[in-house]
Amino acid sequence: MQSRRKARSSDAKQPGLVLPAGCRAAAVVMAYNEERTLPLVLEELAKLSLEEIVVVLNGCTDGSFREARSFPGVTIVHYADKIGHDVGRAVGARMCTSDIVLFVDGDFRIAAEKLKPFIAAVARGTDVALNDISPYLPLFRDWDDVTRLKAFLNLSLGRPDLHASSLTSVPHALSRRAIERIGSALLAVPPKAQAAAIADGLIVRTAGSVNVVTANRMRNDNVGRDNEVARLIVGDHVEALKHVMDKGGARLSKADTSRRREAIARSRQL
């Protein structure tokens, strides 16, 4: 707590985010029973000069709604039942009208200072500003299944430079153009949105580096190697690849032009 308070007071001295004239930024916050951390998250967002803040409450049964209400100017979308992973992002994106939309989770606080680069990158022309988690990853042999697939998706899309950076993890920011081009609905399956963005020629870059790898709150359903959430995210990556394969062919840009496969059939016939 002590260090947190310190960090916050130092943030307060920083100058606010300067956006180009007429450029408006929004934030979408997803929350599922985060009454403890949600106010901390919203406090940080308040330091950014945001036009809109949308909080999507996903089947919250605690005081999250009350906490969100206590912040002025926050739009709350409340779902009594859980709408499931990442669906709130699609809902939030649809509700915003700003040129830039920042996505964060309500379950842990990220200092405003660390969020600024994502908004700034989009202000400078990036369509999809991703969180670069590379510095926080262990050696490859210790990567979890999900991280391996994140990197494989980028590799398959011809963007190995993105390493394991993914729309699955927050924070990230999208341009209005990206949301419109991809379609907000696709954001409910983040890797699919990422694949669509890259395949569509949008500008996808890493914009900042926030440690969400070790900071991520442990929950019953996201602990362990073969947990439910991990399986969901693995499936998201399959769906993402399928999405781009439908247009770009099974091998995407990795054509196999050198194999003489017909020689095999001929060899069998004879």
Binding site: Y79, D81, K82, I83, G84, H85, D86, V87, A90, V91, S184, A185, L187, A188, V189, R231, L232, V234, G235, D236, V238, E239, K242
Partner: peptide, 16 residues
């Protein structure tokens, strides 16, 4: 489409 890795609890209709 998902190779058996389903997302049963995701209510996609909200994401239209």
């Amino acid at each position: 489409t998902r190779c058996g890795f389903e997302d049963r609890y995701r209510k996609r209709h909200y994401a239209r």
